[in-house]
Design a protein around this nucleic acid. Structure first.
Lengths: 329, 329
DNA sequence: GCTATAAATGAAAGCGCTTTCATCATAGGC
DNA sequence: GCCTATGATGAAAGCGCTTTCATTTATAGC
């Protein structure tokens, strides 16, 4: 691999000038630039990014922590983020936190030790205090899908409560009054907020809460299966089932079929997230759209603007979910 | 951030000794090691990985190119690879090739300029010659799901032909004789191989090929829908439908339902890959298992052994697919 | 106790680049 | 044509670490 020194020698200029041509920082005379470019061409020169990082104290890499690498939700998120940074000549280093506080902290430390210029975090388990402290340490990062007091300007969120409200409100508008709810783990912020929305909608229609119609699942498919079965065993009939995400809705649909019931005639089902496969279910799943691609893009642009001083205007911090009506309601 | 110099000063030893403690290369006297460790602790020292990379000419990063970041297949693959490397203190840089030759080449160049120690490639569009040349350039890489002559020792593959064979053979064993086939794009190696397997199974049962029962899809869900509709229009009836991947099978299932036909009574459907959602379909999809997690892990271990000299024994290059029988056949 | 050998440590030269500061060249103002 | 302001270029000092080679210290053998 050719080095900048060889280029400078071949072009008959100093290292500094070659560096200037590469980085386009200080103006270089046209004739000089051409000489240098020709030399780079001839040697097949490509800058050593590690050396650049060391000298400039910029690694041009952005660390990402998500709960899982697999799955449609994170796939879409990562895809969009990578795209955005790639176009800017940055690269992403990805680590999985598995919704576990220790692993999340580990991941963050790991990325930090990799000299990332910034972090994009979708963490669920670490507590607010840790994040506030992290912010104070001077490391730039943006938080996805979580609002933490004290560092609001770093948070990009979906209005989960509004989404939960929309889902249940729609069921109510369709005439349902006995509405069961399968929640995510309530220690997760988004699960709690979606559930709040559900309660709000019920309250608006003057319906009290019924513990027999609530089940706390795990955001997984099996949680949906177990949830539906559990709810039926409670003996309280219901004609509508609101699930806090699509995975659980899918599981619930399977369980409903197995119970010999028809969807939506006997039980209407709604999910949340609008992940890719949600139209693979049968019947196709009505759900709340989570604009994951937009949010991913926004997080990337946040970093581009704040850390790399790119001129970006329209930073948006709060996203509003939308109802997607399909065949399961 | 503390530097190695400060540590050496506080511990009263030289830079070199601190470096030895960090890297555990040359033995250091117990007493000295303890002094150094205490100093590192006190300063909250963490080595600067960029400087390490520059000095050692090792970036401890591995580049990965996959077609897409989203989707269950790549998610699982990436997840496994990341896991394996993380445990080894390495990190991965991920780029998407989008099944497009230019983008694939771009991605590879990009990763290369990032000084990756090795690459793991799941590329479909670049030609064999390019890969052979890349190998000659000295950059270590391993190729997933593709066998290229001349660099066989870098290839980790699934026996796609065997998988295609298994799928169709199963249909034949179930008594089907009119079997339609929805293929992936035949320019993709795996699509071609799976189709070869299909033809082999037919031949074994003495059944000739019928062009009216073949459709070349795109490995996407819509390809399955279009494929089924196209096949029906050909007028040649069939009782079984073999799809070259699960996505298309899922689309086909939707189309079959829409045509008012029952699965598997009127049309049996089989997929390929056994991706996560294949049991979300209704009825649950019979398919061929693609051991994506194992393959990802193996690719990572290949790198660990060949590039980082880790003592790893059981490198496996060829994987054999298996039939997973569910309810769609 | 002294030398021969091995083990532990230190000094210093890079790794390939960026960036500051000084220098040189060019052009404009009078 | 001389002086100054400005733009372009070069010299050289790092960035924080690894690694070679030399040196010092410990261990063993007699």
């Amino acid at each position: 691999m050719a080095t900048i020194y060889q280029v400078s020698e071949l072009a008959g200029v100093s290292l500094a000038t070659v560096s200037r041509v590469i980085n386009n920082t200080v103006p270089v005379r046209e004739a000089t630039r051409l000489k240098v470019e020709a030399a780079m061409q001839e040697l097949g020169y490509r800058p050593n990014s590690v050396a650049q990082s060391l000298a400039s104290n910029r690694s041009n890499s952005i660390g990402i922590v998500v709960s899982e690498l697999g799955g449609p939700f994170y796939g879409e998120l990562l895809s969009r983020i990578e795209n955005e940074f790639r176009a800017a000549g940055k690269h992403v280093i990805i680590a999985a936190g598995h919704s576990n506080a220790d692993l999340e902290r580990d991941s963050i430390e790991f990325l930090r030790s990799r000299n990332c210029d910034a972090l994009i975090l979708h963490v669920e388990a670490v507590d607010d205090a840790y994040l506030v402290e992290l912010a104070e340490s001077g490391l730039p990062f943006v938080l996805i899908n979580r609002m933490v007091a004290g560092i609001e300007e770093r948070c990009i969120t979906l209005d989960n409560e509004q989404g939960g409200y929309l889902a249940t409100e729609y069921m109510l508008q369709q005439g349902h009054r006995d509405i069961a709810y399968i929640s995510g783990p309530l220690w997760k912020h988004d699960a709690q907020e979606r559930y709040n929305g559900h309660q709000k909608a019920l309250a608006k229609f003057g319906i009290g809460e019924n513990k027999a119609l609530f089940y706390e699942g795990d955001f997984q498919e099996t949680g949906g299966v177990n949830g539906f079965n559990h709810l039926r065993e409670q003996g309280h009939t219901f004609t509508a089932l609101v699930c806090a995400n699509d995975e659980m809705a899918s599981g619930a649909i399977t369980a409903v079929h197995e119970a010999g019931l028809d969807i939506p005639e006997q039980v209407a089902v709604i999910g949340f997230d609008n992940i890719n496969f949600s139209h693979y279910t049968h019947p196709k799943l009505t759900t709340i759209d989570y604009p994951v691609a937009e949010i991913g893009q926004m997080a990337a642009r946040w970093v581009l603007k704040r850390v790399y001083q790119r001129p970006i205007e329209d930073l948006q911090a709060l996203f509003i979910p939308q109802l997607i009506v399909r065949d399961s309601t």
